[in-house]
Amino acid sequence: MICDLCPRRCGALRTEERGLGRCRMPELPVLARAALHRWEEPPISGTRGSGTIFFSGCSLGCVFCQNEEISHRDFGKAVTLERLARICGELVDQGAHNLNFVTPTHYAHVVGRLLEEHPQPVPVVWNSGGYDRVDTLRALEGKIQIYLPDLKYLDSDAAGRYSGASDYPQTAQAAIREMVRQTGPCAFDGDGLLTRGVVIRHLILPGQVSQAKAVMDWVAAEFGPGTVLFSLMSQYTPWGRSAEFPEIHRRLRAGEMRAAAEYMANLGLEGFTQERTSAQREYTPPFDLTGVAGEGGAL
C-alpha cells in the first residue's frame, strides 16, 4: 500500500514485511501486548478491565513517550488479520468491557477491515495521540463507539519541539470535532460504563500549566456540558529523550498538578483527574508480547 492514513501523508510504501514511512510499520499489524488493562478512566476500565491491544510504531515523535519501546524502538510482532480477530475474541472471553486499540492511527486500514469483517460484541475504543486525519476517521464512522484522543498542545512551537509536529494543534482539534460528530454526547450503561462518546486526555508537562489551562479553555468553549469527558493526567515521568530538553526533564510538582486540577474544577469540566501516585514507571504495562502469540505460539 501507498500510505496517507496519518496527517504526515508521507506517501510511503508499506508492504507486508516492511514500512518506509514515518511510522516505520509494515502493512500487517504489529502488536506488542494484548491484555486486560485496569488503569484507564473508570467508565472504560470498569471492574474487569479494558481489552487493550497495543500497536507498535507511531507517526508522532514525542520525546517523553512512556511507550517508547514500542512507539520509537518498534518492538512487537506482526500478526495476520485473522489472528488479530482471534485476539479480540480472547479478550472478550476474558471479560473485557471493551476493545481498546492503542496507537491505531497508522493501522486505520486494519482496524476498519477488522470491524467490517468481524463485528464486535463490546464497544470499540480508538485510543490515539489525537494526531489523526479527519478523512481517515470518517472512513471509520459507525465502527468506533468510543474515542479516547490526547490533546497534547495548543501551541505550535511546543508541538514542534516535543512531538515533531508543529501542525498538531489544528490537526488534533479538527480530529476531535470529527470524533464528537460521530459519537454524539457520552452515553453510559446501567453499570456506569461508557458505551459511546469522547474522552479527551491531556498530560500536564512540567512548566506547562498554562498550556493545560489553554487546552481546558478550548474544550469548555467548544463542547457543551455533557458532550465530552475530560481527563487531566498527572502521570508524566522523565522518559525517552526528555534529558535533551532540560525544561521537562523532571517530575511534576504538586503545585502544578493542584493548579491544573483547580482550574478544571472552576471551569466545571466533567471528567477525571489522576492521583499523583500514577507518575510511576510501574504503571506502564510490560511490552512482552502478552496475548499476541496464539496456541503453540502461532501468529
Rank of each mutant, 00 (worst) to 15 (best):
G112W: 03
M216G: 02
T105W: 00
G226C: 04
V198L: 08
A265F: 04
A293E: 14
S210P: 04
V110H: 02
G192M: 11
R38Q: 11
R8W: 07
R201F: 10
P149F: 13
V199G: 10
D288W: 04
R8N: 09
E256V: 04
D189Q: 14
E117C: 00
R258S: 13
P238K: 07
S50N: 12
C3G: 06
A298R: 09
L154Y: 04
Y263M: 05
Y131I: 06
F54N: 12
Y283T: 13
S50R: 09
G51T: 06
A32M: 07
A159F: 07
E247N: 01
G291Q: 01
P238N: 03
F101W: 14
C10A: 06
G21Q: 08
R38D: 15
P149D: 14
Q170H: 11
I87L: 00
V125C: 10
E90P: 05
T103H: 04
E256F: 04
L5A: 09
D135G: 04
A261E: 14
W126V: 07
S242R: 11
S163Y: 00
K152Q: 11
R73G: 06
V134C: 02
L252V: 07
Y236K: 06
H118V: 02
S231M: 03
P7V: 03
K77T: 08
F54C: 12
E68I: 13
